[in-house]
Amino acid sequence: MLTLQCPYCGVMAEETELSAGGEAHLKRFGPGSSDADFETYMFMRENPKGVHFERWRHANGCGKWFHAARCTVTLEVFGTYTAQTSVPPAELLETIRAARPGFKWREFE
């Protein structure tokens, strides 16, 4: 079972205690944006076979939203971090680069 550490309350939370919130760091486009931008924001998704950044909510716990970096093949978790950021922390990216040479996710590599 997947376990993630909640960066707010520190609990090692099991999958059944969490709810998945999909791809992280989406740039939102609303009224007035182009059709292409809106489509990309609304439907197009990163679907990597490898490291993925995603949103989670500690739903049956402290209730906070947070981020996680996780491998979609091995389920290895590289780290979790708070929701108050639009990019992954630099040291987390460094850890992932060291573990997975050639890693690429959107503009991060």
Binding site: L2, A20, N47, T72, V73
Partner: peptide, 13 residues
């Protein structure tokens, strides 16, 4: 599963 993965196993719960 509620999250992206390529594991061909799935979560036990």
């Amino acid at each position: 599963d509620s999250f992206n993965n390529y594991t061909q196993r799935g979560s036990f719960h």
